[in-house]
Amino acid sequence: MSDAIKAATLEYATRLGDDALVLGHRISEWVSYGPFLEEDIAYANVSLDYVGRARMFYTYAAELAADGRTEDDFAYMRSDRDYHNLLLLEMPRGDFAYSQVRQLFADVYYSLVLPELVKSKDERLAAVAAKAIKETKYHVRRSRDWVHRLGEGTEESHKRTQKAVDQLWGYTHEMFDMDDTEQLLADNGIGVDVSKLRDQWHKDVSAILTEATITVPEDSWAVRGGRTGYHTENLGHMLTELQIVHRSHPGCQW
């Protein structure tokens, strides 16, 4: 592996880990606040899937870095500017409709990204993707069902779902941006060219929203910056909570 490719792969694995950890943590904020017990347990399972995915990406990133850092250092010892996750995933959990709409956008995205990543020439990335594909199949079914139920439920649930779609739509464009790092990896058969997935994502999400009687928004505004460390104010607050124990008691084991 050339130095350039290695550095890019390290950044890429970290990004994917950041995406998974940030979303996994956001979902975990529903634990004990779910609308009812069964959903509480089910959504916590999804959270665990994402946190598990983060661990696999960070473990690989730590191996590539080979500077003595571990997966924990990646998760707990980096500040918000070092996190390169997508902005969509760091938005606060909001109400239940908001969380499920964000979940749908993310799950459909991964249902397209992972089948590409599984073909990666990098065996480690391909192995993580192979495991995650099965989880994502289930996640999409869940978030699609919830958007249906909420969209076609009561007047109130429909209103909240539409509002969430309108509020989050501008954060979805960033998911399909490519930069030099990702382009280098895509050209070398290691990373996924996400810019090619945009049309299919739009088609899949539009079909689900339309069936749920939700209006698909026009593309108007777009927010970007997550991949370069420019975040919304929400990530810093989230990280303080996520990292406080580890940073307060360095090296603590129990």
Binding site: F36, A42, R149
Partner: peptide, 20 residues
């Protein structure tokens, strides 16, 4: 047993609650 809105949802929750 568990609570759900319909059969399809019950099947998914059964997967999450009882086959972890």
């Amino acid at each position: 047993s568990l609570h759900a809105e319909d059969h399809a949802q019950a099947l998914e929750y059964a997967r999450d609650c009882y086959t972890r």
